[in-house]
């Protein structure tokens, strides 16, 4: 009798659990996610994204855990396709219950930083909630320090860099390079567009040399000098009232003024190029530890 009771109780339970495990919706979704992961591992990101979009359409049927998995995988697929802003929005939609929570927050913030949304990235990391973990705490400090450099806040960077002594092996080399970037940024000469324009007004092309564009400066000088010499030639041969002189003088004047303006913009161009190069290096060094820690 005991056995019969046991069996009668056990059988429906087993049927419910196992048949649910085989045919029920949740296991089907698990199988679908398993297939999506397989596609992503093969590099079939378009296909994986297509399936994930279809899964997301059935959001009502997804448990919170499944919804987190779908968001994480969509964000990760988009990250691999270098669509960083949509990737960030999916990654940051993952709840704190997910085992991928830390990864999604760090990569979501990094994606935002890569697209120039530094303040949003900082905000994500500032409110990051995790149980006491030296790795996560150190990584957050390192990423926030990188964001300080990107935003040009060298004082805040130096504060955070004080805690680089605790840097884990995951980012110790990158932390060292960040300190070098800080020094490079602090020591970058502040060139003035006004000074560049003034120098080019005195000697055509000199403003571009001052801006760090030596070749452009020499070329500008040669152009203006050749045109000036041509104008003088016409002046010498046919006087100041001749059409040839007036035409040549007008053209030379336009080139001369254009060279002054070009020198002023060359300073901004040079600063943008320098800033862009530094930003790329900083972002690269922020990225490597994340890949090492979470892959």
């Amino acid at each position: 009798m005991k056995f019969r009771l046991f069996f009668l109780v056990l059988l429906p339970g087993l049927l419910l659990c196992v048949s649910g495990g085989v045919r029920g919706q949740s296991p089907d979704l698990r199988e679908e996610l398993s297939f999506v992961r397989y596609l992503m591992a093969r590099g079939d990101l378009d296909e994986a994204t297509y399936l994930l979009e279809r899964l997301a359409e059935q959001s009502d049927a997804l448990s919170p855990h499944m919804a987190d998995s779908v968001s994480y995988l969509r964000g990760w697929a988009l990250y691999q396709q270098k669509e960083l802003i949509p990737s960030a929005s999916f990654l940051l939609a993952v709840s704190g219950e997910s085992p991928f929570y830390l990864k999604t927050r760090f990569f979501g913030a990094y994606n935002l930083a890569h697209e120039g949304r530094y303040r949003e990235a900082s905000a994500v990391l500032e409110v990051l909630d995790f149980e006491s973990s030296a790795m996560a705490d150190g990584m957050r400090n390192f990423q926030l320090a990188g964001l300080d450099l990107l935003m040009g806040d060298l004082a805040s960077f130096s504060d955070r860099a004080g805690r680089f002594d605790e840097a884990s092996h995951l980012y110790i080399e990158e932390a060292g390079r960040m300190l070098v970037y800080r020094d490079v940024l602090a020591g970058a000469p502040a060139r003035s567009p006004f000074v560049a324009g003034f120098l080019s007004a005195v000697v055509p092309g000199l403003g571009k040399v001052y801006a760090g564009k030596m070749a452009e400066g020499i070329a500008g000088f040669l152009y203006v000098a050749a045109m000036g010499a041509t104008t003088y030639d016409f002046y010498r041969g046919s006087g100041s009232g001749s059409a040839l002189f007036l035409l040549s003088a007008t053209a030379t004047g336009i080139f001369y003024l254009g060279n002054i303006r070009g020198s002023a913009t060359a300073v901004r161009r040079q600063q943008n190029e320098f800033r862009h190069e530094m930003d790329q290096r900083i972002l690269f060094d922020m990225h490597i530890p994340l890949r090492n820690a979470f892959n």
């Binding site: 050749a226 045109m227 010499a229 041509t230 003088y232 030639d233 016409f234 041969g237 040839l244 040549s248």
Partner: peptide, 14 residues
């Protein structure tokens, strides 16, 4: 030929 040697070089020859 008209004596504009510099202009000849900077315009014509260039």
């Amino acid at each position: 030929l008209n004596g504009y040697y510099v202009a000849g070089v900077t315009i014509g020859l260039s």
